[in-house]
């Protein structure tokens, strides 16, 4: 069964195509991650599915319903954690959970909800007095209080400390065990890699790649050779100079030089040969399998190239 279906979705603001022909579908019980930079169209896509925005054209259905009708039956079955949305800061965690749960047909109890998101100790604190990360957990709590079949998580762990992130990953995984379908947006590749069954990469409003994290890594990948930029090379010339030395396309960010290559042995040989000729040491020389992050950077670069 398909829980979410998006077909040739467009959202235009005048000349700007925030979403420009996106299609994907998410099966029941699946975790699907939309990955992309700010402005890539992730939130716009999700907000159309949540019923907050109207698409310019194309179709979007959630559990077989058109979300723009915002009908009550559908909203009873979805949980939404918006990227940024307020919650009544003058109320305690207990009060907001009880208040929001009261409008659903099936609910989780207070103890269960605060236990799941890890706010047991803050139940009687006012939401306004919580830290940013704790407030984000309140968002999460209110997203799951109605026992949703489909959960939308728009950058759910932004602002979390590492322990809290892990904890909310565990939460999402335990929800999945209950058969909840999750559509997640994130910048964090480790988050997508850990949680998602499938990943869709968005750039400039288009879906530029889709697959399981493993498939994406397999499909493009290669091996990443990296080292720190030697002082003898000016940062401005680094890409050209080192590109010629390595015989591969080179990415330079700060002092980090990276090349993703299919035949790392020869690349490493060229790099070390050049360094010996120059009489310099290649600081931080590393050879590793491409991660989802490298795949992502390559994809985005490729999509931006004319």
């Amino acid at each position: 069964m398909v829980a979410i279906r998006v077909a040739d979705l467009h959202k235009h603001y005048g000349e700007i195509h925030a979403v420009d022909g996106v299609s994907f579908s998410v099966g029941e019980g699946e975790v699907y991650a939309l990955l992309g930079e700010n402005g890539a169209g992730k939130s716009t896509t999700v907000e159309i599915l949540e019923g907050h925005r109207r698409a310019t054209s194309g179709t979007a259905t959630v559990l077989g319903h058109d979300p723009t009708d915002a009908d009550r039956e559908l909203r009873d079955r979805i949980g939404v954690v918006l990227q940024s949305s307020g919650v009544e800061g003058e109320f305690t965690v207990r009060e907001v959970v009880e208040l929001y749960s009261s409008v659903y047909r099936t609910r989780r109890g207070l103890d269960e909800v605060v236990g799941l998101v890890g706010l047991d100790d803050q139940v009687d604190q006012r939401v306004g007095s919580l830290s940013g990360g704790q407030r984000r957990r309140v968002d999460l709590a209110l997203g799951i209080v109605g026992r949703p079949d489909v959960l939308f998580l728009d950058e759910p762990t932004t602002g979390f400390d590492p322990a809290a992130r892990r904890r909310s990953w565990d939460l999402v995984e335990s929800l999945c065990d209950d058969g909840v379908t999750v559509l997640l947006t994130t910048h964090y590749l480790d988050e997508a890699e850990r949680l998602a069954d499938r990943v869709g990469v968005l750039a400039a409003g288009r879906l530029i790649a889709e697959g399981t994290p493993a498939e994406l890594i397999e499909g493009i990948s290669g091996t990443v050779v990296s080292f720190m930029l030697p002082e003898s090379v000016a940062p401005a010339d680094a890409a050209a100079t080192l590109g010629a030395v390595l015989g591969a396309e080179v990415r330079v960010s700060g002092r980090l030089v990276e090349a993703t290559v299919d035949r790392p042995t020869s690349t490493v040989h060229r790099a070390t040969g050049w360094a010996l000729d120059q009489g310099i040491e290649l600081e931080g020389l590393t050879v590793k399998r491409a991660s989802l992050e490298d795949v992502y950077l390559q994809l985005v670069e490729r999509a931006a190239a004319p």
């Binding site: 907050h52 009550r72 909203r75 307020g86 409008v103 047909r105 209110l142 109605g146």
Partner: peptide, 20 residues
């Protein structure tokens, strides 16, 4: 104020009818 805080938007995601 409630609208700019995003509280209204959050309620919009719940099954509470607008008129309610």
């Amino acid at each position: 104020i409630r609208r700019d805080e995003g509280v209204l938007k959050r309620w919009r995601s719940t099954p509470l009818p607008t008129w309610g």
